[in-house]
Design a protein around this nucleic acid. Sequence first.
DNA 1: CCCCGCCCTGAATCGAATC
DNA 2: GGATTCGATTCAGGGCGGG
Lengths: 387, 387
Amino acid sequence: MQDLRDESVNTIYLDPPFMTNKKQSLSSRDGEHFYYEDSWETKEDYIRFIEERLIEMHRVLRHDGSLFFHCDRNATHLIRFALDKIFGEENFISEIIWTYRRWSNSKKGLMNSHQTIYMYSKSDEFKFNQMYQSYSETTNIDQILQLRSRDANNKASYAIDKDGKTIVKNNKAGVPLSDVWDIPFLNPKAKERCGYPTQKPLLLLERIIEISTDVGDSILDPFCGSGTTLVAASQMGRFSIGIDIAQEAVDISRSRLEKPVKTESRLLEVGRDAYNQSLSELSSILYGIDYTLIQRNKGLDALLSSKYSDKPIFIRIQRQGEDLRQAIQKMALSLRNKGSEVSFLIAIEPSNSLIDYSHPNIVVINSLSMSISGSIASKQNNAKVLM
Amino acid sequence: MQDLRDESVNTIYLDPPFMTNKKQSLSSRDGEHFYYEDSWETKEDYIRFIEERLIEMHRVLRHDGSLFFHCDRNATHLIRFALDKIFGEENFISEIIWTYRRWSNSKKGLMNSHQTIYMYSKSDEFKFNQMYQSYSETTNIDQILQLRSRDANNKASYAIDKDGKTIVKNNKAGVPLSDVWDIPFLNPKAKERCGYPTQKPLLLLERIIEISTDVGDSILDPFCGSGTTLVAASQMGRFSIGIDIAQEAVDISRSRLEKPVKTESRLLEVGRDAYNQSLSELSSILYGIDYTLIQRNKGLDALLSSKYSDKPIFIRIQRQGEDLRQAIQKMALSLRNKGSEVSFLIAIEPSNSLIDYSHPNIVVINSLSMSISGSIASKQNNAKVLM
DNA sequence: CCCCGCCCTGAATCGAATC
DNA sequence: GGATTCGATTCAGGGCGGG
């Protein structure tokens, strides 16, 4: 870093290692008291180590630049102190929370499923490209589409044109990007993985680069590891400088830069909501039944929490406009290898033919609304006959 | 707090004020340099203030208790230092992120849309009730259902029994609850609001109480403000102690405890907790049918929009623990002057006697969950008979 | 009592099979 | 034949057991 000129880079991202190993080796060597002492020593060393480098980073960062510090869960407070000291409290911009879902375990307590990234600027003239996210589901659509004005008493209301109609305002971008980022954790099977242990998803770096730099700007990663920052920067037309003490890291970064691989994630493409379309419908039909939702299988909708002779019980709800025969076939197909002895199909429409296509493991039940309307219809028919 | 005995409370929740006012008044009076100095002074005072109280809290907390510290965004690192000092680093359990969507402003930078709650225990025997959330949208059922094994090369695959069928495991409740909690911010118009500035949503406190205490346990809130903690605790059958220096706060807390109001957030409709039970049952049962809710009649719950031979059709749902005979009687009473020729009573529990008390205008229909459990029970009986 | 390594778990991609 | 579906797979956190 010493080779870099003053105020020469636009953005710095770093994800330095936290010395947990060192701490552990020390703990095994000495008694408990020493373990504590040593661990504290290590922390002080660690902070000194970080601060020395932060001073250099502050020097090479441009006046309108910003720095993103990716923290270990155990050191966030130490790092924020160091940052306050070297960049100044008044330049603390955001505490970014990167949240993700990950393979679970049965630990006592809550699942750790976030990491912290501190954003600091060098001055309040820092460069920032506003990004937008979609509106909350509960936002009133009128609010987005209609222009608002204020009357004489400064009371806000929808603006009205000369014909008395509300004025529709187009292309509202959305809500300014939140500081909580839900970005999938790099999956064990992802092609994007290159074998480096703490590899970060490209999308995370892309977002950081997007909000803080323009095309042609420069990015520094002083602990570049597998080189994710460099790959993201080069794909986005930014210059980048990566530094790492390990030769291995430099090699991986080089090879990744030559052949960048980005995961084509379906989840990222279509978004989480795409999976959840029928959720509310389901929960209202299955109210009072203890179940687990099944998201990714067209033949099954829910798994009951109770069992029948130790075999799972599934539920499926007939789709609107779907023939009952089709529904049974789909369900039967999905049940093939699941070892279920009883499962339930809930019919929501009267079938137009007798059920001659029944299946041994599937019980067809009428939804309540169907029972009610059926019952009314039969009463009416009786009434007609009586008349 | 000094009146409380050692190790006497199970959980402590606190959300103390951060001294921003003092800091600001100082900053406006003096030049920039002084502003800094003074602000630091204030921070040290603040930390001393917090630490003194944390020591008392540590004293009154039970051995298996835990503490939840709701932090101001500007002081998270200071607070974590104080907590590490007084509770011990090894008792740091979780950094809980409460995220919400809020009304946007056009500030430069990311929208602040989270707050931090630190969870510390007094020992590693802390009480913890595991809560579960639903599986990810991308999880497939086979993983939940099927046992896996490893071959000689330690490669994982689904286990197969001697008949070549996959082995079904026990059902799971879901994934252990994450440390990132998406709970709607108290809407400015919400009924739940009682005018206190930093009021927290009941749901947030309910979750904290749920994971850390059992019925009959005690909760202390030493900065109780508007008393949300006390309201949540009393609704959940826990004892609670609230302390506040402001008489106003104590008054508000008292009145809220007498008349608790909870917002039914539309965002949480899908979650079973937030749902008004009878409303939800109705919407489930009447899914796909047009109806009007009947609010203040013990004998009737809804009026269908369709009619039977020009006479109204009513719906009633059997109450939990209510005998079917009682239900019919109540309904019949309410129907007396309504001129209905067909109405429906939805049974939610199997009746212990044959219905010899039927009523000409009332049709009894089984709820869906009852149909399913009844069907399972009869299958099991058949199986027994066959054996 | 501590440490190492095996085991269980589930997110999300992969990729074969199916539509 | 392109898109979709869904069974299979990998890997790391943390528990637990054995040395």
